[in-house]
Every structure is written in C-alpha cells, then in structure tokens.
Design a protein around this nucleic acid. Sequence first.
DNA 1: AAAAACACTTGATCCAGATCAATCAAAACT
DNA 2: AGTTTTGATTGATCTGGATCAAGTGTTTTT
Lengths: 252, 252
Amino acid sequence: MSDRKVISFEKIKIACKSCSLSTLCLPMGLEPNDVDRLDEIVKRNRPLHRGDYLFREGDKFQCLYIVKTGSVKTYAPSEDGGEQVLGFHLPGELIGLDAIEKSRHHCSARVLETSAVCEVPFNQLEELSTTIPSLQHQMYRLLSREISQDENMLTLLGKKNAEERLAAFLLSLSERFKRRGFSPSDFHLSMSRHEIGNYLGLAVETISRLFTRFQDEKLLKVERKHIQLLDIERLRCVVQGEERDGNQRLFT
Amino acid sequence: MSDRKVISFEKIKIACKSCSLSTLCLPMGLEPNDVDRLDEIVKRNRPLHRGDYLFREGDKFQCLYIVKTGSVKTYAPSEDGGEQVLGFHLPGELIGLDAIEKSRHHCSARVLETSAVCEVPFNQLEELSTTIPSLQHQMYRLLSREISQDENMLTLLGKKNAEERLAAFLLSLSERFKRRGFSPSDFHLSMSRHEIGNYLGLAVETISRLFTRFQDEKLLKVERKHIQLLDIERLRCVVQGEERDGNQRLFT
DNA sequence: AAAAACACTTGATCCAGATCAATCAAAACT
DNA sequence: AGTTTTGATTGATCTGGATCAAGTGTTTTT
C-alpha cells in the first residue's frame, strides 16, 4: 500500500469534535466533553466502495452506521430476488435504527459510491446514553425523526402520483444537500434510475420519462446523473399536486 | 352521572402491574418496583368515544398515549381535506412516537370505538428513563419497532398489489389480536372500508370487491364489520403473491 | 315511523403507469 | 480500438385499480 493512500485514509479519521457534520449527527446538542466520550466508542474504517455492504438482512445487529462522506442505500430484499429500497443516506445520517428491537438487521445496506462511514457499537452507545441524558435525548430525537420520515414516505406512496413523487424526491435531496453545505440546485445522483424508481414505487421507464418531461417544462436540467434544479418553487407546486393552470386539486 | 358509570370507569383505572397488557406495553421487561415508578406518572382518563381526538396535527407534544381497550387510528391530514391513515392501534400499542423530535404532533389521532387510553407525559418518562436503564432500553426497542413496521408498510405500498395488501392487513390484525388473547380468526373491524382503503392506498370499491372475492374463494367470511378468517395458511400465500396454480412470482 | 345521512356493494368505463420492445450511449473489459 | 455489458431513453401497448354511477342496507335524526 502506498504512502499516499495511508495519508488520505488518515485524513478521514477525524474526531467527532472536529467533524464538520457534528451539527447534524449524533453529537448534536452534546457538551464538548460528552462528545469526547462518544468519540472514544466511534470506529472509523477505511473508505468503502460502490456495492460494498455495511450489513445484510439477517446479520446480527452490532453497530449503528453514520455516513461521513458519500452515500448509502438501505433496502429490504425479498425471497424472489426483488427488493424495496427504503432510503438513500447522506453524510450525517444514521443507519440501522430499525434493527435495535430484534437485535438483527432486517434490511441490507450498500454504499452507492466511494464512502466513509463511522461505526458506533450500539451496546456501548446505549450504556453511554444512560450516563449522558442529552445523548439519550438525541437518540430519542433521531429515532423519532426516522419514524416521521417513514410516515412522510407512506403518504407519498399512498397518495401521490408519479410526478409528485419524483418532485418530492428531488426536493428532499436538494434540502439535504443544502444543509450539508452543498449546492441545493446542482448535484450528482449517486443512485441509478432503477433505484430511484424502486424507492418511489415506480418503473424505471416512468422515472426516465418524468426527467424528460421536467426538463421540457424547464423545471430542471438533467444530463445522466447530473441534475440542475432550475425552478425549485415550481417544483414545490408540483409536489402539492397543483394543476398546470394553477388550480389546486380537491381532496385525495 | 350514575353510580354504574363511575364504577365502570374505576374498573378501568388499573395499575400497570395488574394490567393484562403489561407484557406488550411500556412496562415490558421492567422490575416490579420500576413498574411502580412508571405507574406514578401514567394518567388514566375516562373512556373516549368514537371520533374523539387524542391529539391533532400541530398540537404541542406533551404525552405518549397507549391504547388500553378499543382502537385508535392515526392519520396525516393534508391541506386539501384529504388524509393518509398511518396506522390502526390496538391495546398495548404506543401512539405519538413520531412527535418527539419536533415536540409537535404532525399527525392526528382519533378513537375508532369507545376506548380507554393511558397517557404518559413524555418529559417525565424521559427523565425516568435516565434512571432506569431497562426503561431506556424498552423505549429504544419500541421506537425501533415502529421504524420496522413503517418500513414493512413501505414495502407493502411500494411493491404489493391490492389483494396482497388486504391479505397482509387482515393477517396483521389477526396476529395482533392473537397476542392480546382475542381470537385470531374471528374479529370485528372497528374501521370503515374507506379507512382500510385509505391506509392501504386503495379505493373503497377495491376493498369491497376484494372482500367479496376472498369470500367467494373461501378464504374468509365477511358480514359487515365481522370477519372470520377461514384459511389463514392460504391467506399467507396470497400475501406472498403466489399464483392460483401454486407458482411463485418471479422478481418484482 | 319516516326521512335523511351514511356505509357498503356492484357494474361499467377509463386512465396512469406498467410492461414489452427497440435503440442508444456510456462505461468496463478484451 | 473494438466488443460486451449495463444503464437510460423513447415508443407502443396493455391492465390493475381508479373513477363514475346506481342501487341497497344500516344507522341516525327528526
């Protein structure tokens, strides 16, 4: 292994207190010395590459994972080879919260692009949280947020049509990139059209057609995986299911 | 108010330790004296009636609610008067976990039939959980379970067709009734066809037709809100999307 | 007891999005 | 550089479940 590689790996091993994500991540709201205690149990591994697994469905649950750079998808595989994509995870987002109850993962997680991921042994985190009330509080908040997000997604799948779904997806990415200091209107999709469709309960072809349509309507510019949102306001209207002529839809 | 009513109300005010739900509910896995401490913060109100609200979207989050008897639906109202039903809650099930993060409810909860509901002030519960590690653990488990259930529901809405959805719904009720000591094959639906359809992302008419079809196929017997499951095994096959002739479906 | 409101069922028709099929384009591999 | 593989686009067709419509049964109101 070359020296260069070791150096770039070491650069990734940043302590929580000097990590740029600390305001989005587990340490949010903790006192500096509590962050140090948390820091001691966090493991930082070398970067993973496209397709690598964080864990697979059925694995014993040991750790929560936090994306540091890159992106990760979680999905529920089904016996017949199909899968349901459950989420795409950006830096600062926690992965594995659904495994606490049964102490076993019932979804799989794979990285979508070269990514750095922090690992937090849950037993140690739980023990630490008994002695740091603000950490316990943060855990409750993060678990609760995950529930809210899933409920939001239930409404999307239960009530929204194809164009509303894709618009909502793009705006969600946009807002999350923004909070992480990236451009909210110019970004790269690390997932395939197929994965987007799977996540949104739509066929690949539908995603493709919608991108073309949105581009025709000057809502965005798309070139393969590079997206530029041209009219975020109007995209918000699309999510709300507003008609072309500006009328609202009645009931659902 | 008559004496009878007061007596029947008092009968509902049972301490956690003598509550038949204690193995499903918050106190699960707690030491008897910890249950007593939990018991002190639990409020038990008089029964609520069909249509009564536990809370409304936008309300300040104060308490978690636990169904003691009866049933409750939670739903996300949308501006245009529509709604997405998020869940139906049976005795022992916790309601309001999605409100912790923002300290505000973003769904509404109404009882479906005359119901008794326990109320747990969250601030007090959180404080108690800092001093009772097993209570903290139980909270993590319950929050995690909620996430799993929602993810399960995402797969249902994203990948399953109408008959698979209804079969899964009925089996879910069946299993939950069973764990509560009720018949898994003979029960009463406290929600309307409209609410079932809304929950499953289907139209009322589709629900109605499927009940008729399932009855024709001798999977169940339905008479208004009274359901008898006649062939739970075959219903499980329907959920898996098996073809009439016994073949499995390939991919999804 | 009649009337009104509501919940459910059943049939006929329609349509958004799936599926099938054919290219096309960009990586990845020889 | 050429070949294969994989991903994305576009068009044509099909269909599951929505929507529309009409009627029935049940509960609530008066």
